[in-house]
Structure formats: C-alpha cells, structure tokens
Amino acid sequence: MPPKKKTVKKNVKKSNTKKKTDEGRNELEEKYKQSELDVTVLKDHLALRGDLTKHAQSLCHDLRSRIRDMEQELRHERLDRKDVCTVHCQEKLSAERKEREQMQQEKDATIAELQNKLDNMEIDYEKILHDTLDSLTSNLAKARLQWEKESMSSHQQYKELLFDFGLNSMDI
C-alpha cells in the first residue's frame, strides 16, 4: 500500500499544482480583467477629458471671438460718442460764434452811436465857438468904433486946446 500513497501524493501534488496554476491563472486573469477594466475606465476618462478640453477650447475660442466683437462694438460706440460730442461741440461753437457776432454788432452799433454823438457834439461846440468868436469880433468891432470915436473926440479936444494955446498940432 505504500505505493498507493505515493501515487496519491503525486496526484495530490499534481492537483495542488494544478490548483495553484489554476488559481494563479485565475488571479492573473482577474488582474488582466481588472487591468482591462482600468484601461477602459482610463480611456473613457481620457475621452471625457478630451471632450472637456475640446469643449473648453471651443468656449475659449467663442469667448475670444465675443471679446473681439465687444471690443469692436466698444470702438464703434466710442467713435459714435466722439461723433456725438463733436456735433455738440460744433453746435456750442456755432452758438458761441453767433453770440459773439451779435455782441460785436451791438458794440459796433454802440460805437457808431457814440461816434455820431461825438461828431454832433463837435459840430455843436464848433458852432458855439464860432458864434462866440463872431460875437467877440462883433463886440471888438463895436469897442474899436467906440474907442476910435472916443479917441477922435479926445484928439479933437486936444487939437482945439492946442489951437487955443496957439500951437499947431502938426508941429508937435
């Protein structure tokens, strides 16, 4: 019987080895399946990340495009605002010019009026001066005539007195 035991042992050993090999194979297959599952999960994760990256890049491109559009719109708005400000400034400038021209016309009218008054006053003063000088000349002429009369009468008196004394007035 001992030989039977050995056979059994061999069988047991073979079966243990088989079990170990099957177990190792099962474990290896399990690890392989787990690795395949991990690879699949990682591929899915990578694909999801790729999709997210593409989506993010697309959003980034869209945002950049929107930023460019908004910057262009802002430039247009600034130009429009500048144009509107220019129009307002031109209107104000035009109003200021009209006001200035009106003030200048009023000043010119006032100056012309004052110049006219000055000319009239000059004419009046000249007339008064001429009248005064004419009156003075007339008074002087009257006074001269009166002095001449008085002087003639005085001369005549002195001539008569000299004649009374027997003197000739021509000799003296």
Rank of each mutant, 00 (worst) to 15 (best):
P2A: 14
P3Y: 07
P3Q: 14
P3R: 10
T7Y: 01
K9W: 04
N11H: 04
N11V: 00
N11E: 10
N11Y: 02
V12F: 00
V12W: 01
K13P: 01
K14G: 01
N16P: 01
T17V: 03
T17W: 03
K18P: 02
K19S: 04
T21A: 12
D22F: 15
D22K: 15
E23K: 12
G24S: 15
G24M: 15
N26P: 01
N26S: 12
L28F: 08
E29Y: 06
E29M: 07
Y32G: 03
Q34K: 07
Q34C: 05
E36L: 12
D38W: 01
V39S: 14
T40P: 01
V41G: 05
L42S: 07
L42E: 08
K43N: 03
D44E: 11
H45E: 14
A47M: 05
A47V: 07
R49E: 15
D51T: 14
L52V: 05
L52Q: 14
T53R: 06
H55G: 06
H55L: 12
Q57V: 04
C60G: 05
H61R: 12
H61I: 03
D62N: 10
L63P: 00
L63W: 04
S65H: 07
R68I: 06
D69M: 06
E71C: 04
E71G: 03
Q72L: 13
Q72A: 12
E73Q: 13
L74E: 11
H76M: 06
D80C: 06
R81N: 09
K82D: 11
D83S: 05
V84I: 10
C85W: 08
T86R: 04
V87C: 07
H88M: 13
H88I: 12
H88F: 04
C89S: 14
E91V: 13
E91P: 02
K92H: 09
K92I: 06
L93D: 08
S94D: 12
E96W: 05
R97K: 09
R97H: 09
K98P: 00
E99Q: 10
E99D: 11
R100G: 04
Q102Y: 10
Q102P: 00
M103F: 13
Q105K: 08
K107F: 14
D108F: 15
A109V: 11
E113T: 08
E113V: 00
L114S: 05
L114H: 06
L114C: 04
N116Y: 05
N116H: 08
K117V: 10
K117L: 13
K117Y: 05
L118Q: 02
D119S: 09
D119M: 02
D119W: 02
M121I: 09
E122D: 05
D124H: 04
Y125F: 10
Y125V: 05
H130G: 00
L133I: 03
D134Q: 11
S135K: 14
T137M: 07
S138P: 00
N139S: 15
L140Q: 13
A143N: 10
R144D: 10
R144T: 14
L145Y: 08
L145F: 06
L145S: 11
Q146W: 11
S153D: 02
H155P: 00
H155M: 09
H155F: 03
E160R: 05
F163Q: 15
F163S: 15
D164R: 15
D164T: 13
G166M: 08
S169N: 11
M170P: 02
M170F: 15
M170K: 15
M170V: 15
D171L: 13
D171S: 12
I172Y: 08
I172R: 01
I172C: 02
